[in-house]
Structure formats: structure tokens, C-alpha cells
Computed example of a mutant assay.
Amino acid sequence: MRIVLLGPYYPDVGGVQVYNTMLAGGLVERGHEVTVVSYGWARSRWGERVIRLPTPRVPGVRGASFMAASALRLAAGLGDADVVVAQYAKTSGVAAWIARAFGGPPYVPVFHGTDALVGAGAWLVRRACRSAPAVAAVSSHLAGVVRERFGVEPRVVRGGVDVEAFRSLPGREEVREEMGIPAEARVVGIVGSLVPVRDPELALRAALSHPDALVLVAGDGPLRPRLEELARREGAGRVAFLGKVPHERIPLVLRACDLTLHTPRWEGFGLSALESMAAGTPPLAARVGALPEFVRDGRTGFLADRSLEAISERLSEVLSDPEGLERVSREAREFALSRGWDAVAEEFESLLEEVVS
């Protein structure tokens, strides 16, 4: 098939970007002709064709300009494609719907999380979904939200992990030696964009409540100055801000930690938690959104109510039981490594074949 993947892409990091990039690799591996239409800084990773659209890096303006430019490109230059996979329904999905009205290819909007919570533009997303031959979502929880809000039944295609990259990770002590972290330290990781919906401040406050914990913060965003000030006040010398880490190095950061914290206000899937599991580092996650679908308390990770008191208390319990933490680490890794991106590509291939036929 001639498949267009529309939306955020490599080298950007984040759930949507990684999902789109790794899906492209899986589809190329399966012999499909893949074209990516993305922002102006996107790059090819698998030898696939990448069309970069001029995009201002201004919040709000960026999304609107990308919708307009991608709709025009799909209708005017890619009408011979078999199907478009529109990653992030409120922008790419709407663009693909507009393009379809002017001769663009059939399309499948894919919901990843906050795109299902759109407010003022919900009617556009609803029209785009109801006009599409199929809709996808990355978790059962998210599929339920989409069903209720937009009146369509999505196909659930969960994300995966790079099995080869995670299987080949060196031991925790070796990674810590490379990063200059004491082998015997208790290390808590916070990995992801430092934005309000992720609420990294709650995670950092919980981590700092444990007096012996060292904290690695991998990610960047508008909340970073606030977190750095909190670290200076309450955790001097115990918090390392790594900034924006290339996705290829995220497995090493995760491997260096004993535990990672995930405290979002809402979660459509939780790729960072799944990748933490693949690194043999159990996630301690808030009972929010899709996280409980694969973070199984005391088996593949740990769950707590989304409050500072509950998460801090659970963190202390977990770190005080090294044998239990090691047992969960093994089960979490085995579980996560059973879901590679090849399986995601296979499931998407099946869905797209139904659409094309």
C-alpha cells in the first residue's frame, strides 16, 4: 500500500511522535511505500520519504498553519495514495477530512489523548471522525472517551516498545557508572514533557519527600524553571535536570532509575510508563486514564491515587522493599517486551487493508 503518515514525527520526542515514527518503521519493514507529512524540522529515519511543511514554532498558530498546509498538500499532491493515517485527530484528522472533500485519499484519524478533550473545535473533530471509514485510539480508556464524545467506535491499537533496544541494555550499575550516579543510590526518574497536563511538579514533590532519593528529570517544557526553583528550595544537590533527551537515549536514562513516577492529570496511553517497564524500571503511576490498563499494582508497576500524600506514601513503601521492587521489575520487563512495534504495525496494516478494500 501507499500510506501517508500525517502528524508529528522524528526527531521530536513525545508519545505521538514516537508512535508515528516507529509505526513508519514497521510499515516500511513490511514492504509498504510510506510517505510522512510533518512539520518543517522532521527527518527521515527509515529511508521513508518525508515532506516537511513550513511551520512556525508558535503555539496555537503552529497547529492551525499545519492543518491548512497539510490539507492542501494531501489534496493537491498526494491524491494517489491509498490511505492517510492522521495522527492526533484534532489537527491531522481534521486536515485529512478537509483534504478528502477536495480529492484527497481516504483517512484514519488516530486519537492519542488530549485530542479527545478538544473544546471549541469538537464539532470539526466529530465531522472528521464520522466521515472517516475507520477511527483508531491508542487505549481502551481513550476509545471509550471518543465513543462518548464523537459517536464513533474506534479500533484500539496500543503502542509498543523498541524490543531490540531495550533487550540490549547494559546492567543498571554499568549505566550509572557512565552517568556518574552512585551504584548504591536510590534513583527516582521523571521522564516526559514538563507541561501542565503531565503535572511533573506533583511527581517532583513526591520524589523529594523521600529524603534519600536522587531524582533524574529528563524532559523540557514551560514548567522547567518552576521545577528548578522547587529543587533549589527543597532538594538541593538531589535533583539532576537532563533537559530534552534524544529518544534513542531514553532507555539508558530509564535503566539508571530504580523507579519512575507518572502523575499526569489525564493520560490517553502512557508510553513513557511502558518504556520504563521495558527497561526493568517499574513505574509508580497515578490511577488516571489509561495507565491502569497495563500498570498492574504490585505486578508490572505500582498504582496510587493522584495526590501528593498517596504517591509519597506509596513511594516510601516501594523503596523500603528492595526484594519486592526487584520482583516487580522482572515481571514488568517481561510484560513490556512482549509488545513490540512490529505488532503495532501488523495491527495497523490489517486495519488499513480493511479501509482500502
Rank of each mutant, 00 (worst) to 15 (best):
1 M>P: 07
2 R>N: 04
2 R>Q: 08
9 Y>V: 04
12 D>A: 13
12 D>E: 14
14 G>R: 02
14 G>F: 04
16 V>H: 03
18 V>G: 00
22 M>E: 15
23 L>K: 02
23 L>A: 06
25 G>C: 05
25 G>A: 03
28 V>K: 12
31 G>H: 09
32 H>N: 01
36 V>H: 00
42 A>K: 04
55 T>P: 06
56 P>L: 08
56 P>K: 08
58 V>F: 09
60 G>P: 09
63 G>C: 09
68 A>N: 05
69 A>V: 09
71 A>L: 04
73 R>D: 15
84 V>R: 03
86 A>V: 07
88 Y>F: 07
88 Y>Q: 12
92 S>T: 01
95 A>G: 02
97 W>Y: 15
98 I>E: 05
99 A>R: 14
99 A>C: 13
105 P>M: 09
110 V>Y: 01
110 V>K: 01
112 H>T: 03
112 H>M: 04
117 L>S: 07
120 A>N: 04
121 G>V: 06
121 G>L: 14
121 G>N: 14
123 W>F: 05
126 R>A: 15
127 R>T: 06
128 A>P: 02
129 C>N: 04
129 C>G: 13
133 P>T: 10
134 A>R: 15
136 A>H: 09
141 H>D: 10
141 H>V: 10
142 L>F: 09
145 V>S: 07
148 E>W: 08
150 F>C: 06
156 V>K: 12
158 R>Q: 12
159 G>Y: 00
160 G>K: 01
160 G>T: 02
161 V>T: 09
162 D>V: 02
166 F>M: 04
169 L>K: 03
169 L>D: 05
170 P>S: 07
178 E>C: 04
181 I>T: 11
182 P>V: 14
182 P>S: 14
184 E>M: 07
184 E>T: 13
187 V>I: 13
190 I>W: 04
193 S>E: 07
193 S>R: 15
193 S>N: 12
196 P>M: 05
196 P>T: 06
196 P>V: 06
197 V>F: 07
199 D>P: 05
200 P>N: 01
202 L>T: 12
203 A>D: 08
205 R>S: 10
210 H>K: 05
211 P>G: 12
217 V>S: 11
218 A>Q: 11
219 G>M: 02
224 R>E: 13
232 R>A: 15
232 R>G: 14
233 R>A: 13
234 E>C: 10
236 A>V: 13
237 G>V: 12
239 V>H: 09
245 V>A: 11
245 V>P: 11
246 P>I: 02
248 E>P: 12
248 E>M: 10
249 R>Y: 11
251 P>V: 07
252 L>E: 13
256 A>L: 05
257 C>I: 05
259 L>M: 10
264 P>D: 05
268 G>V: 09
269 F>K: 10
269 F>D: 12
281 T>L: 00
281 T>H: 00
283 P>S: 01
284 L>M: 14
291 L>S: 11
295 V>D: 08
301 G>N: 06
302 F>T: 06
302 F>Q: 04
305 D>Q: 13
306 R>W: 03
311 I>F: 06
312 S>P: 08
317 E>G: 03
319 L>K: 00
322 P>W: 01
322 P>K: 06
324 G>E: 11
325 L>G: 11
326 E>C: 07
329 S>E: 00
329 S>Y: 00
329 S>W: 00
331 E>P: 01
334 E>C: 00
334 E>M: 06
335 F>Y: 15
337 L>V: 10
339 R>Y: 15
340 G>P: 11
340 G>D: 05
342 D>Q: 14
348 F>L: 05
353 E>C: 11
355 V>P: 11
